[in-house]
């Protein structure tokens, strides 16, 4: 493996300062949460931060105190530290009880070994798993100026929001967090800022090299989930090309705010189909103030594929998305 320096800051401020110091010296930096994915990129010499090459400095966040827990915040919602492990998220009773979509998303990630090491922030900020990016192609995501999937092997690529890059966002937690209307706390040189998870991710036509707004010296510190105004029923449904241990071909995170058996508002966010977690507002609107029936869920599924533009080899994702949404809505509504 390439030689690098490992730094062990004890606080977020120190972590940001170490990153800034390295960048000033012209050295490339990556923050390391669980590090499982980051180390593969380093071993394969795939640029983690586009344009800055393989990291010279890893800023290990595992010694930063107080960012690996789920806590009830003053507003009645939950604050989830960015370093909370995926295993802990899946097992957390408060999440399972009130925000099942997030616990189910965490449980669906990879394997026990990776969930033990992997973190919320790392899952949300992981780089794409496009086989061109991961295998040494000088594509947009690696700092180049081409997307090889357009005329290539695009079975797993985007049907929404693509261009000029057609990667799909690989995170399972990201659709769940957007569906829960989470806010993200980001730390950087200018101090902390808080932004909607909806505004955190960026499409390739806004910034082709990155999947989110983070600068090289910024990190995702925590996710804050607001207190729901009513009863929440939610579900995360993930289709893989085998039963376990891979990314979503298509996934849907569904959050329904219920009033008895009537759905007041719905948020539906798709994974595996677009370069960012993909909201489907037309489908959401159909559920407003409605009783959730199989007929309505079918219509919601149809509405969710409006505007889909498949590539040469991924048209199968369009009907798959329709049925994933239909099933996820019915499963969420059936929660007692």
């Amino acid at each position: 493996m390439k030689a690098f320096v490992n730094e062990n800051p004890g606080s977020i401020d120190e972590a940001v300062m170490l990153a800034q110091a390295a960048l000033r010296e012209g050295r490339s930096v990556s923050f390391a949460g669980g590090g499982t994915d980051l180390l593969q990129l380093v071993k394969e010499r795939v640029p983690n931060r586009p344009g800055s090459g393989v990291p010279d400095v890893l800023v290990n966040l595992k010694r930063v105190a107080g960012i690996d827990q789920v806590t009830r915040n003053d507003q009645g919602g939950l604050t989830i530290g960015g370093l909370t492990s995926l295993t802990d998220l899946g097992a957390n009773p408060q999440l399972r009880d009130r925000y099942a979509v997030l616990a189910e998303a965490a449980d669906s990630v990879a394997t026990r070994q990776i969930r033990n090491a992997g973190t919320l922030a790392g899952n949300v900020c992981q780089r794409p798993w496009c086989w061109y990016y991961r295998n040494g192609f000088d594509c947009y995501k690696a700092g180049g100026n081409q997307c090889f999937s357009i005329a290539g092997e695009n079975q797993l690529h985007a049907i929404f929001g693509g261009g000029p890059s057609f990667i799909v966002h690989p995170s399972d937690l990201a659709p769940a967090l957007v569906a829960l209307d989470a806010r993200f706390r980001v730390a950087g040189p200018g101090g902390d800022r808080s932004l909607s998870s909806n505004d955190f991710f960026v499409l390739p036509n806004e910034d082709v090299a990155h999947e989110n707004v983070l600068g090289d010296d910024e990190l995702l510190v925590s996710a804050v989930i607001p207190e729901p105004s009513g009863e929440i029923r939610s579900h995360f449904y993930k289709i893989m090309d085998r039963e376990t241990w891979t990314h979503a071909v298509v996934s849907a995170a569904v959050v329904l705010e219920m009033d008895g058996e009537i759905c007041r508002t719905a948020r539906i966010v798709l994974g595996g189909v677009a370069p960012i977690p993909w909201r489907v507002p037309a489908a959401e609107r159909l559920l407003a103030d409605q009783r959730v029936t199989p007929e309505l869920a079918d219509s919601v599924g149809i509405a969710s594929i409006e505007g889909a533009r498949p590539l040469a080899k991924n048209a199968y994702k369009v009907p798959l998305t329709r049925r994933v949404v239909e099933r996820a809505v019915l499963a969420a509504a059936a929660r007692a």
Partner: peptide
């Protein structure tokens, strides 16, 4: 955990 995917220093 996968010992190939975590650092000794961690």
């Amino acid at each position: 955990v996968y010992s190939c995917s975590t650092l000794a220093v961690w």
